[in-house]
Amino acid sequence: MFARRRFAVLKNLLEYVGIEPGRLHFSWISSAEAEKFQKTVAAVTEAVKALGPAQHMIKDIRKVA
């Protein structure tokens, strides 16, 4: 519940600096909801796949070394 406020602000901030909305996902799944888990994994994978490989925030050692 405290985490919810933190995530709300963090997600807004990361999207504000240009991380695509589909890259970061949050969900509530209880330990009895295996089916919801399965569906959410599929949805998350689908959303990230649609965006393609990540471009930002990746540390490129070749650039700094």
């Binding site: 519940m1 919810r4 406020r5 933190r6 995530f7 709300a8 997600k11 996902h25 949050f26």
Partner: peptide
């Protein structure tokens, strides 16, 4: 402070 507080009706549309 707002970060050490929560309310049951805080917005959560971003959470699946």
């Amino acid at each position: 402070p707002p970060m050490s507080l929560f309310r049951p009706n805080d917005p959560q549309d971003f959470i699946k």
